[in-house]
């Protein structure tokens, strides 16, 4: 893992350009993003974006300090039941993700799983995931991926993971002043299209956030990216723009997705979009292969392209810190 201290201005860690006068140095942010795959921390503190390698945060050169009032972890795409060459042992890698979570210096309050819990929607696959995740001793919030709703329109998923949800499995909740919204964009997909939220869910979302103060930080989580990453491979959501229009009034919106099995980040105004590692297998970068299927990497490299995402919120601060860290 990278040992370079990105807090060192010479290493490009500090904000140097803040053209929009909003505390976000987009050039600095991009530098930070470049480190994301290696486990970097990107955080806005007091309107200042800083970044540092995760190795530094976890290592001795920078003692972990109490950073915020809410820390949670995102995991994604466990694909329990997958057994092809890209990863013949998805149980072991999910287990490694759990070990990683349990070893975090600042323990997360809860976990978000952004879908594709299972590979084939089988109860035995869900059972295995539940059994492994139990070791985190954390509350876990799930949204479905397309692999979780294969043959029953999501009935098993909702029965297990979203009992008190609305419609096809969407819901919201509040934690420490942050409003969380779990959305479903993997059902009723139209031929030739991308992910879909649908009018019923959009209407619910509009209503759900209507009463909230503009200063309330919002975290939206859903399986397929809510920004157009690569439409040729279906990596986007057809009606996400409408969903985001309901969130325009908020000062801080963080959108967390999975599905594409690689980390990616984009900032648009007050919205930070982020996609997480899978815990099962990597997928190629957009357009870098003939198709978006599982990507085989040398066995010794597999765990460097799988991982977890650590998210930190400091009350009164601008945006949430999103940290990706690979399993090794």
């Amino acid at each position: 893992m990278a040992k370079k201290n990105l807090l060192d201005p010479k290493a490009g860690g500090f904000i140097e350009h803040d053209h929009n006068n909003d505390g976000i140095d987009r050039r600095g942010f991009l530098k930070c993003m470049a480190w994301a795959g290696a486990g970097a921390l990107c955080v806005v503190q007091g309107g200042v974006l800083t970044s540092r390698a995760l190795a530094s945060q976890m290592g001795s050169e920078m003692k972990p300090h109490k950073m915020g009032e809410l820390t949670f972890v995102q995991i994604s795409d466990s694909h329990m039941g997958f057994n092809k060459p890209a990863n013949p042992d998805v149980i072991a890698t999910l287990q490694a993700a759990v070990d990683k979570i349990n070893a975090l210096p600042e323990q997360p309050e809860f976990i978000l799983h952004t879908g594709d819990i299972s590979h084939l929607s089988k109860p035995s696959e869900f059972d295995n995931v539940d059994q492994i995740l139990k070791a985190t001793n954390k509350e876990i919030f799930f949204v479905p991926g397309e692999h979780d709703v294969l043959n029953d329109e999501g009935a098993i998923f909702r029965e297990r993971y979203a009992k008190n949800s609305k419609g096809q499995g969407w819901y919201s909740f509040d934690k420490n002043g942050v409003h969380f919204v779990g959305l479903v964009n993997v059902m009723n997909l139209k031929a030739g299209g991308l992910g879909t939220l649908g009018p019923e869910q959009l209407e619910w979302l509009e209503d759900d956030v209507k009463h909230l103060k503009h200063s309330t930080p919002i975290v939206v989580f859903a399986h397929i990216p809510l920004w157009t990453v690569y439409p040729e491979w279906g990596w986007g959501t057809d009606d996400s723009a409408q969903a985001l229009s309901y969130l325009k009034k908020f000062g801080s919106v963080t959108v967390l997705n999975g599905h594409i099995h690689q980390t990616m980040q984009k900032v648009e105004g007050n919205v930070t979009f982020h996609t997480a590692f899978s815990t099962a297998f990597p997928q190629p970068a957009p357009g870098k292969a003939e198709g978006p299927g599982p990507m085989k990497v040398p066995a010794e490299q597999l765990r460097s392209v799988l991982g977890i995402t650590d998210v930190n919120y400091v009350q009164g601060r601008h945006a949430l810190a999103v940290v990706d860290s690979p399993l090794v």
């Binding site: 397309e146 692999h147 294969l150 993997v186 997909l189 139209k190 031929a191 030739g192 299209g193 991308l194 439409p231 040729e232 491979w233 279906g234």
Partner: peptide
């Protein structure tokens, strides 16, 4: 008869 993959709808 037009068809698609209902979980990867870009496939038609």
């Amino acid at each position: 008869f037009a068809y698609y993959c209902s979980i990867h709808p870009k496939m038609v």
